[in-house]
Design a protein around this nucleic acid. Sequence first.
DNA 1: AAAATCCAATTTGAATGCAAAACTGGCTAT
DNA 2: ATAGCCAGTTTTGCATTCAAATTGGATTTT
Lengths: 220, 220
Amino acid sequence: MLHEEVVGRVRAMLLDGEIPPGARIPERDLCEKLQISRTPLREALKVLAAEGLVQLLPNRGSRAARLTDKDMRDLFEVCQGLEALAGELACERITDAEIADVAAAHAAMVRHYGEHDLLQYYRCNRYIHEAIIAAAGNPVLSGLYELVTARIRRARYVTPMTPRRWALAVQEHEAILNALQRRDGVGLSHILRAHLRHKREEVLQAGFAETEPLEQARAS
Amino acid sequence: MLHEEVVGRVRAMLLDGEIPPGARIPERDLCEKLQISRTPLREALKVLAAEGLVQLLPNRGSRAARLTDKDMRDLFEVCQGLEALAGELACERITDAEIADVAAAHAAMVRHYGEHDLLQYYRCNRYIHEAIIAAAGNPVLSGLYELVTARIRRARYVTPMTPRRWALAVQEHEAILNALQRRDGVGLSHILRAHLRHKREEVLQAGFAETEPLEQARAS
DNA sequence: AAAATCCAATTTGAATGCAAAACTGGCTAT
DNA sequence: ATAGCCAGTTTTGCATTCAAATTGGATTTT
């Protein structure tokens, strides 16, 4: 197994909640599960710690990072900035084919909204946001976006919405697609920021932060 | 030596150019120099690779990353976005004392400009930009900023300027301080973007990218 | 009985050792 | 003379090993 693969596997376990936030990560157990020795696993853990997904406690091992309310606020704030930037750049650089692709995803999303299928709705939603990032044509931006969104992914794409909030989100997405089709960078940037600001409020109100001080179960 | 210290030491060697861009990094040599064994060094290299400062070639070791023109452009573009965001947030959150601190650094910078002391000028310049980031009060933002600026630091704070460019930069900094003092977030955001756009043009014109395909000398 | 202390057992952090892959230089064949 | 190839050496990647730190619990002390 390649280094990047190990990092990817452990990252997936963290993002999927297979290793819950705050859980200690006993190296030996994970090694056994991944069928590798401690050396490459420890390399992966240090990388994930640099990404903010793992917290290293010197001489006391590592644990899955936990997000406070402040962390969540900060991450969303930066995410707003990154998406706003991406929106502006995307309007300058996106191709007609890519716009059509986003439009299709948008239509599918609206369909899922009509069917009250939250899971599929979120899948399309995420696809659209990521397509806008990709359309900015800036790998550095994409990389940072991935770093930031990884940490708030579960809060962002799992939190249930009130009918009122959901309707508003769909409306905002109409405006997003519209701005993109008109290649209105400034407009897209603004609507994306508002959209994410609303999402942040929603997530914070839902109390999604992972601040429980109690000891979590270890990874199964 | 602690893990973070190893990462820091190697990162410093990369940023200082002690290990020049493109140079191969023989693990044994670095181990000897740092007086550590290969295991912790390799952990540090993987972290630095995740940061984009080191390039890992599977089974063929690692080398100091080299920036192409495109990389430089992308990094500056993102840096613009981050500083613009920080500027807006800073105007909402900065204290009077912090503004006074920036004003003092600005005055010192102008003095160094008058003395044609580029090195000291750049030092104050960098201090100001970092103070604005810090004033945004968002550690996630600060972290990403550090990631991005580390990679363009040498291009940004070493490139010589024409008298004309230098005068313009000072003028822009007057506007930056002014917007900050008026707590004009939108204005600060705009002037910061323009300021960095100009810097980027300058750096790219100076041909600062590290694209030489020839084999570099190894770390001394 | 509660608190502090000490000791065994576990776990982490780092060095070493070993197998596999890549580079070097010299040789052969065309 | 040059291109291709092969053995020897070096370097990487990972498993193992060893020392140091931590944890939990039993024992002792107040």
